[in-house]
Every structure is written in C-alpha cells, then in structure tokens.
Amino acid sequence: MTRIARYHVEAQTGVGFLLKQEQLLTIIDPQGEQSGDLVAFGQTDKTEWLSSGRSIDYNGTIYLTTGHVLYSNRSTAMFTIVEDTVGKHDFLFASCSPEMFRREYRIEGYHPSCFENLGKNLAPFGITGDRLPTSFNFFMNASVLPTGAIKIAPPLSRPGGFVRLRAEMDLIVGISACSAPGCNNGTCKPIDVEITGSMST
C-alpha cells in the first residue's frame, strides 16, 4: 500500500484531513497509554456524521474492535475496523471540553481540550465546534460497572499499538490526542496517524 500522508499529533493538539473511500486510516500510540478522539463527516454532505448511537445499536456492543463497522447518523457505513492490536476503545464519552475541565476537575483558567482542538482543525472544512458529535475515543479504557457507573482505567495500548480503519465513504476526519491526563494514566502524550491506499482512490 502507498503511504499517502502521515501526521504526528503532539500531546493536547489535533489534526483535520480528507480521507477517500477505501483508504486505510491507522492510528498509532507511539509511547503507550494515550487515548484520543476521532470524529468524521461526509465530504458530500457535512450533515452526515459518525454516530455513537447507530454504531453501538447495529453492532450490539459498546466495545467496538476488529470486524465492527462504525455508522453515520443516517445508518451509512463510514468505517470498518480492519485491525486492532489494542482491543478496547470508548464510544460513550463526549470530547473533553473547557466546561468539562471546570465542572469535573475544578480547573479555572485555560486548559487544552479535544473539543477545541477538533473544532479548530475542522474549521477549514466548514465544521464548527457546536456540530461535533460524540467522538470515537480510540484506546480509551472505559468500562460500565453493574451499577451503571463508568470506570476509566489506563489505556491498554502499549508503545506501537494501533487501530486500523477502512473508509467506507469519502470523509472529513478530525483526530485529537486526548487532553485529559486522567484518561491517559496521568500524562498526555502524542498520537501518530497514517493514511495508506491507492492515490487514485
């Protein structure tokens, strides 16, 4: 496969890019125990976006991994997870935001957030922050307890761990390296992103 693009997403930052149908998107954790957020929109119609609810509904599980399909709000296949060396991701939590850091962490003043990083990097594609759906939180280790409470533990990803997704339609994609230390075993680290496939696709 031809490498089309590679991005090194520094800690607490993000990136936005176009992804064509059948291209492969590989998200790599270079240092280990670092999660991140992924959102996607249709290139043809930006009111079609990656849907947590549809994806969980149609796969019948909240733990999405190899072989599962991620769907849009219109029930269209957006991604297929074709390879996953980590095996644990989250699709329940919204992207961390300035409001979340104030409410949950009692942080006053500025703190980087995935919501802001996604919004900033998708703005050139005409997508504003208030249109961001619930993100696919790759490598985030969240488990639902019998009480219904959600427990967040350190990501299971080790250095070089990755998840590879095949685009099932032409997409606008935003990715952030998670800005919440509590989701990353106390330290925010970078994420690497690679796009491979045919240049003609």
Rank of each mutant, 00 (worst) to 15 (best):
L25S: 01
Q31K: 15
R158L: 14
E168R: 07
G160D: 06
Y7K: 11
P124D: 11
S113E: 06
V69R: 07
G174C: 08
R6Q: 15
M78Y: 13
E99T: 11
T80N: 11
T201K: 15
L64V: 06
V82R: 00
Q23E: 14
E116F: 01
T76A: 13
L19V: 13
D84A: 05
E104G: 14
F41T: 01
V69A: 08
T147K: 06
Y110C: 04
S198K: 11
I62H: 09
A5W: 00
T47A: 07
C114V: 05
T47L: 06
G160S: 09
V173P: 00
E10M: 07
M100K: 09
S35Y: 00
G32P: 05
M78Q: 13
V15Y: 04
G197A: 09
S75G: 08
G160Y: 10
P124W: 12
G87R: 05
V193I: 14
R106Y: 13
L25P: 00
G109R: 10
Q12N: 14
F115G: 00
K88M: 09
K88G: 03
E168P: 02
S176I: 02
I107N: 07
E108V: 10
P159M: 03
T201P: 01
W49G: 00
D192V: 04
P124T: 09
S52D: 15
C96T: 07
E104A: 15
F138T: 03
H111A: 08
N73F: 01
Y110G: 07
A77H: 07
V82N: 02
F91R: 00
V173A: 09
F93T: 04
N117D: 10
G60M: 03
P181A: 12
I127E: 01
H8A: 10
S176H: 04
G42S: 13
D84V: 13
A77G: 04
I191P: 00
M199K: 12
I27T: 02
Y7L: 10
G126C: 05
V39P: 02
I56Y: 01
V193G: 00
T147D: 15
N59C: 06
E99P: 03
C114P: 05
V9K: 02
L38C: 03
L18D: 02
C178V: 06
T80Y: 07
E104Y: 07
K20T: 07
I191C: 05
G129V: 09
N73C: 13
Q31C: 12
H68Q: 11
G36R: 08
A94R: 12
A123F: 13
A153H: 05
G148D: 11
D90R: 03
L19Y: 02
L24F: 08
E194K: 03
N185T: 05
P98S: 09
Q43I: 07
D45M: 04
S52E: 12
C96S: 12
L24H: 07
M1K: 11
I4T: 09
T26L: 05
T85P: 03
G109A: 10
S52V: 13
G42E: 01
E108M: 09
M140C: 10
H111R: 15
T196W: 01
S179I: 03
T147Y: 09
G16C: 10
T85V: 12
M169W: 03
T26M: 13
I56G: 01
G129H: 14
D37N: 11
D130R: 15
T61R: 10
D57C: 06
L165G: 00
E99A: 14
R103G: 12
R3D: 04
E10Q: 12
R3H: 08
T128E: 15
F41E: 02
E48I: 15
G148K: 14
T76P: 06
